[in-house]
Protein backbone atom coordinates (compact mmCIF):
# COMPACT_ATOMS: atom_id res chain seq x y z
CA UNK A 1 0.00 0.00 0.00
CA UNK A 2 1.37 3.40 -0.95
CA UNK A 3 1.90 5.99 1.72
CA UNK A 4 2.87 9.61 1.61
CA UNK A 5 6.24 10.61 2.99
CA UNK A 6 7.51 14.10 3.62
CA UNK A 7 11.16 14.96 3.92
CA UNK A 8 13.66 17.68 3.14
CA UNK A 9 15.73 17.02 0.04
CA UNK A 10 18.66 19.33 -0.50
CA UNK A 11 16.93 22.01 1.51
CA UNK A 12 13.57 21.78 -0.23
CA UNK A 13 10.45 20.08 1.17
CA UNK A 14 9.40 16.97 -0.73
CA UNK A 15 6.13 15.13 -0.53
CA UNK A 16 5.80 11.87 -2.41
CA UNK A 17 3.82 8.64 -2.35
CA UNK A 18 5.93 5.51 -2.09
CA UNK A 19 5.40 1.84 -1.50
CA UNK A 20 7.10 0.54 1.68
CA UNK A 21 9.34 -1.78 -0.34
CA UNK A 22 10.83 1.02 -2.44
CA UNK A 23 14.40 1.92 -1.67
CA UNK A 24 15.51 5.46 -1.09
CA UNK A 25 18.01 5.21 -3.95
CA UNK A 26 15.32 4.29 -6.46
CA UNK A 27 12.94 6.96 -5.23
CA UNK A 28 15.65 9.63 -5.48
CA UNK A 29 16.78 8.55 -8.94
CA UNK A 30 13.56 7.42 -10.61
CA UNK A 31 10.93 9.66 -9.02
CA UNK A 32 12.79 12.77 -7.91
CA UNK A 33 15.36 13.09 -10.70
CA UNK A 34 18.31 13.13 -8.31
CA UNK A 35 20.96 11.16 -10.20
CA UNK A 36 24.19 11.65 -8.28
CA UNK A 37 23.75 8.62 -5.98
CA UNK A 38 24.54 5.59 -8.15
CA UNK A 39 23.60 1.93 -8.24
CA UNK A 40 26.82 0.04 -7.52
CA UNK A 41 26.17 -3.13 -5.56
CA UNK A 42 22.67 -3.04 -4.06
CA UNK A 43 24.00 -4.37 -0.75
CA UNK A 44 25.55 -1.34 0.91
CA UNK A 45 29.06 -2.53 0.14
CA UNK A 46 30.45 0.00 -2.33
CA UNK A 47 29.32 3.44 -1.17
CA UNK A 48 28.33 4.71 -4.63
CA UNK A 49 24.77 5.41 -3.41
CA UNK A 50 25.82 7.42 -0.35
CA UNK A 51 23.67 10.34 0.77
CA UNK A 52 23.55 12.35 3.99
CA UNK A 53 20.68 11.53 6.35
CA UNK A 54 20.49 14.27 8.99
CA UNK A 55 24.13 15.01 8.24
CA UNK A 56 25.36 11.43 8.43
CA UNK A 57 26.34 9.37 5.41
CA UNK A 58 24.17 6.35 4.76
CA UNK A 59 23.72 3.83 1.96
CA UNK A 60 20.54 4.72 0.11
CA UNK A 61 20.47 1.31 -1.62
CA UNK A 62 19.72 -0.43 1.67
CA UNK A 63 17.47 2.25 3.10
CA UNK A 64 13.71 2.12 2.63
CA UNK A 65 12.25 5.38 1.40
CA UNK A 66 9.63 5.26 4.17
CA UNK A 67 12.44 5.43 6.73
CA UNK A 68 13.30 9.02 5.76
CA UNK A 69 9.81 10.39 6.43
CA UNK A 70 10.34 13.56 8.45
CA UNK A 71 14.12 13.51 7.98
CA UNK A 72 16.63 15.56 6.05
CA UNK A 73 18.43 14.19 3.00
CA UNK A 74 21.33 15.87 1.25
CA UNK A 75 22.95 14.59 -1.94
CA UNK A 76 25.82 15.95 -4.02
CA UNK A 77 23.27 18.19 -5.76
CA UNK A 78 22.57 19.84 -2.42
CA UNK A 79 26.20 20.30 -1.43
CA UNK A 80 26.99 22.32 -4.55
CA UNK A 81 23.83 24.43 -4.49
CA UNK A 82 25.85 27.57 -3.87
CA UNK A 83 28.74 26.73 -6.16
CA UNK A 84 31.63 24.33 -5.92
CA UNK A 85 32.71 23.47 -2.39
CA UNK A 86 36.36 23.65 -1.37
CA UNK A 87 36.39 19.87 -1.40
CA UNK A 88 35.11 19.74 -4.98
CA UNK A 89 37.67 22.32 -6.06
CA UNK A 90 40.38 20.21 -4.50
CA UNK A 91 39.08 17.03 -6.18
CA UNK A 92 39.19 18.88 -9.50
CA UNK A 93 42.71 20.19 -9.00
CA UNK A 94 44.05 16.79 -7.93
CA UNK A 95 42.42 14.89 -10.83
CA UNK A 96 41.00 12.85 -7.97
CA UNK A 97 38.73 10.64 -10.07
CA UNK A 98 39.04 8.72 -13.31
CA UNK A 99 35.78 7.15 -14.49
CA UNK A 100 33.97 9.36 -11.98
CA UNK A 101 31.18 6.94 -11.10
CA UNK A 102 32.19 6.74 -7.44
CA UNK A 103 32.83 10.50 -7.13
CA UNK A 104 29.44 11.54 -5.66
CA UNK A 105 29.72 8.86 -2.95
CA UNK A 106 33.25 9.88 -2.02
CA UNK A 107 32.16 13.52 -1.91
CA UNK A 108 29.42 12.62 0.58
CA UNK A 109 31.77 10.62 2.82
CA UNK A 110 34.53 13.22 2.73
CA UNK A 111 32.08 16.05 3.38
CA UNK A 112 30.79 14.26 6.46
CA UNK A 113 34.34 13.67 7.67
CA UNK A 114 35.35 17.31 7.24
CA UNK A 115 32.17 18.52 8.93
CA UNK A 116 32.93 16.37 11.99
CA UNK A 117 36.67 16.78 11.94
CA UNK A 118 37.98 19.70 9.89
CA UNK A 119 41.63 18.64 10.21
CA UNK A 120 41.80 14.87 9.78
CA UNK A 121 45.17 13.23 9.26
CA UNK A 122 45.83 10.84 6.40
CA UNK A 123 44.91 7.80 8.45
CA UNK A 124 41.59 9.29 9.54
CA UNK A 125 40.84 10.12 5.92
CA UNK A 126 41.55 6.57 4.81
CA UNK A 127 39.36 5.17 7.61
CA UNK A 128 36.54 7.54 6.71
CA UNK A 129 36.48 6.66 3.02
CA UNK A 130 37.28 2.97 3.38
CA UNK A 131 33.64 2.05 2.76
CA UNK A 132 33.70 3.74 -0.64
CA UNK A 133 35.13 1.57 -3.37
CA UNK A 134 37.01 3.02 -6.32
CA UNK A 135 38.35 0.65 -8.97
CA UNK A 136 40.27 3.23 -11.02
CA UNK A 137 42.47 5.48 -8.97
CA UNK A 138 44.20 3.54 -6.23
CA UNK A 139 42.82 6.28 -3.93
CA UNK A 140 46.05 8.29 -3.97
CA UNK A 141 44.64 11.50 -5.44
CA UNK A 142 41.35 11.21 -3.55
CA UNK A 143 43.22 11.05 -0.25
CA UNK A 144 45.59 13.81 -1.40
CA UNK A 145 42.72 16.10 -2.33
CA UNK A 146 40.95 15.65 1.03
CA UNK A 147 44.23 16.11 2.88
CA UNK A 148 44.77 19.37 1.02
CA UNK A 149 41.42 20.71 2.22
CA UNK A 150 42.12 19.48 5.76
CA UNK A 151 45.39 21.38 5.84
CA UNK A 152 43.95 24.60 4.48
CA UNK A 153 40.88 24.96 6.65
Amino acid sequence: MKREINFTLNGDPVSIEVRPNEKLLDVLRDHLGVKSPKHGCGRGECGACSVLLNGKSIRSCITLAVEVDGQEIVTLEGLEKNGLTDLQKSFLKHNAFQCGFCAPGFTISATELLNNNPHPDENEIREAISGNLCRCTGYKNIVGAILDVAKKK
Partner: peptide, 11 residues
Amino acid sequence: VRIDGLAKITG
Protein backbone atom coordinates in the same frame (compact mmCIF):
# COMPACT_ATOMS: atom_id res chain seq x y z
CA VAL B 1 43.40 19.38 -15.00
CA ARG B 2 41.55 16.68 -16.91
CA ILE B 3 38.94 18.15 -19.22
CA ASP B 4 36.21 15.79 -17.98
CA GLY B 5 37.06 16.63 -14.37
CA LEU B 6 34.39 19.24 -13.74
CA ALA B 7 31.63 17.03 -15.13
CA LYS B 8 32.68 14.23 -12.82
CA ILE B 9 33.14 16.11 -9.56
CA THR B 10 29.82 17.95 -9.95
CA GLY B 11 27.75 14.92 -10.88
